[in-house]
Design a protein around this nucleic acid. Structure first.
Lengths: 188, 188
DNA sequence: GCGGGTCGAGAACGACCGTTCTCGCAGTGC
DNA sequence: GCACTGCGAGAACGGTCGTTCTCGACCCGC
């Protein structure tokens, strides 16, 4: 508790788990206090409002999510394998206990209409993922338009896995991705 | 107001617009009263709780959404054209003012963790859409596995259009769907 | 040992929400 | 005319939430 930085980390850790598991509005600041062990007073010194905490939560989640994805993709060397690895990583993510879809999609649905900043954070996260895919696609010598299609497959897999409760959509998306890669390779 | 049935319709109409536009938790029963012109007392006679109203809202939206989609698809005769028409209809939907993504995905993100019935309603809606696509795909003489892939494209397009604020994802999904249809036609 | 500052625990505050209750009014059968 | 029933408007109730305040304990330099 004494260290300012570890208190901040504990708060973000607890808030991240609670917000993701139950939804932002269903989690009160008291629950964050209980989960982090950081008093309300310190909590409001670290984050001036719940909205600020929510934005910090989203930014942390964006950074972690993209880093985890990139680390897994980097275990493959060939450009085509890197693309396929994206969908393998999705499968692993979907299989994690407590998986409940994309935190940004959930937050957007919950708060996007009332908080322009939350909506902007969701846009930023999705744009970053799209840009990342574009890099992989162009590295494989294919046109960037393929990245649009792969992004839609990944996005659809995330939502479908969340609602259906199974990781299988990642496999179906990977099948479709392979077909699209083959089709695009031929047409170039 | 005198007729019980029209009061119910007004409530569902107002609740539908408010819940979809702002999210369920952001809309109080007072706002539904104001939007519908139906008194709080009658409102609670028609729906015993807010949760019941939310479920009725989702069920109405599911029926309307699927009917509107089927009506548009039925304007085409050829099986392949029907499949493509799904994505054209998505484009029209995304272009509507106030479009804010899939009501079921939004509600699932908001309430799915706390309300098993809301989660079930979302599953049912997505399953019905998937079954509908499977019917179109098999009618075109293609394997049902193609429907899985098309469903992911559509799902991804809905979410991406909502967050990005443009209807273009429908076009990209349609491009990918055409490629997958061609690829699948060849492999069968 | 002691004043000053810092902190945590929890009360307090104001707002809002879902739900129920009160009350006055209007219409109906007789 | 009159008791009765049903209705709408809005107050009321109990609970929760975000945020701030109080208060007592602890820790530091001196």
């Amino acid at each position: 508790m004494p260290d300012q930085e570890t208190a901040r980390e504990r708060v973000l850790e607890a808030a991240g788990e609670l917000f993701y598991a139950r939804g932002v509005q269903a989690v009160g600041m008291d629950a964050v206090r209980g989960g982090s062990g950081v008093s309300l007073k310190r909590l409001y010194q670290l984050f001036p409002s719940k909205e600020a905490l929510v934005l910090a939560y989203l930014r942390q989640r964006d950074a972690r999510w993209r880093r985890a994805l990139a680390e897994h993709v980097d275990t493959r060397a060939a450009p085509e394998e890197k693309i396929v690895a994206v969908f393998d990583w999705l499968h692993r993510w979907f299989s994690e206990p407590g998986f409940r879809g994309c935190a940004f999609v959930n937050s957007f649905g919950e708060l996007g209409a009332t908080s322009a900043e939350v909506a902007e954070e969701a846009r930023h996260h999705k744009q970053a993922f799209h840009d990342y895919l574009t890099g992989l696609v162009t590295a494989s010598g294919r046109p960037a338009a393929l990245a649009d299609q792969l992004a839609l497959l990944a996005e659809g897999a995330i939502t479908t896995a969340a609602i259906s409760g199974t990781p299988e959509p990642a496999d179906r998306a990977r099948d479709a991705a392979r077909l699209l890669m083959d089709a695009t390779a031929r047409t170039v």
